[in-house]
Amino acid sequence: MENSRRNFLKVAGVAALGVGVKPAVNVLSAAGGGETPAAKVAKHENALTAKKWAMVIDTRKFESEGDLDKIIEACHSIHNVPDFSEIDTPERVKRHEIKWIWKEEYKHAFPGNENEYLNDRLKYLPFLVLCNHCEDPPCVRACPTQATFKREEDGIVLMDFHRCIGCRFCMAACPYGSRSFNFRDPKPGIEKQNLDFPTRMKGVVEKCNFCAERLAVGKKPKCVEASNGAIAFGDLDDPNSEVRELLRENFTIRRKLSLGTGPVVYYIV
């Protein structure tokens, strides 16, 4: 029994190599070191991996707002994003709104680039906006507990809901308005829970996670799947990837480049 305890603790030691695991686990793991095989943690064999995940949204392929709504609905339903419109006053529903991916008109998605005489398609068809998974994310810089962090392996900006203290510094820091706060318990607003993904609790911040939970089991993000080929997803560091090909062949724009955040969501207009 003592041996297997050590085995488990060795695993804890492995985990401790990552950032910020509880110091207590570190101390315990120092006592490890048995000879029998230890427990291990590993990726799924079919997990999708990349050096730097990126997304290219081809706005030309959307025909109506319905195309966009379908994608939003697909994302929000698998991630248990609540909708309070049935259970609260309109004003409070708006204040407490949570969104991971949503529609913005061109002038709001790209403020400062407004154009009075805009192309008709762009004027009437909103853009899909989401977390830009910045190369140098201001939200990560601001977070006092590393509850939001940039994953080293693939550059996804993630949330650790267990650690978030709800100070909302990240929301003030994000120049894209990509973050939502659970102003109340979300569960009453979730019609049908998806068992493969947890809900959140009141008092924590949430946002798009580039479907890290799907990538881990070999699936592309839900929005990509629901977009009928309008959204591409791939490794920005791989010259042969689909996204790199699209970037080579098309002129693309990104949101608020002048802020130096380095967004990895590209738009073909």
Binding site: V41, F149, R151, E153, D154
Partner: peptide, 8 residues
């Protein structure tokens, strides 16, 4: 939550 590894 913090790494890519999900299999124990």
């Amino acid at each position: 939550v913090r790494q890519v590894k999900r299999v124990y």
